[in-house]
């Protein structure tokens, strides 16, 4: 029972340890030395890690004309509208609304003559 729990515990942690090059703790190491399925799992993730890292070196050619497309579109609006929360507009709106409310309040407080 204890062995099964240890096996599940180690197996669950194999990906994060192998993919991040983190060493196993002594008890986990002890289990790994005796457990063939876990050793196979470590080998699988080592290979996965190695191949993923090697993918960085393989460059992909950008499509022809990308530079021209970029330069021709430098002044066009962005896909996401970043001006939605333009701070100048927000502050100006707050000031205008605040001033209007203050004026309205003063007007109401003034005693009727």
């Amino acid at each position: 029972m204890r062995s099964t729990l240890q096996h599940q515990f180690v197996r669950f942690r194999v990906p994060e340890h192998v993919m991040s090059d983190r060493p196993f703790k002594p008890r986990a190491k002890e289990h790994l030395e005796a457990c063939l399925p876990c050793q196979a799992e470590v080998a699988n993730y080592r290979m996965l890690s190695r191949v993923l890292r090697s993918m960085r070196d393989s460059k992909e050619a950008a499509p022809p004309g990308l530079v021209l497309r970029v330069m021709a579109n430098l002044s066009r609006p962005l896909t996401e509208d970043h001006r939605r929360f333009d701070p100048v507009v927000v502050i100006a709106s707050v000031v205008v609304v605040g001033a209007a409310m203050a004026l309205l309040g003063r007007h109401r407080l003034r005693p009727a003559s």
Binding site: M55, S58, E60, A62, L66, V70, M71, L74
Partner: peptide
């Protein structure tokens, strides 16, 4: 924009590679 164009030329493949992945 001429300097920027050179930057785009220099980085287009790595940016496209990342975008493609």
């Amino acid at each position: 924009s001429e300097a920027f164009e050179k930057l785009v030329e220099a980085h287009q493949h790595e940016v496209f590679g990342l975008a493609l992945r």
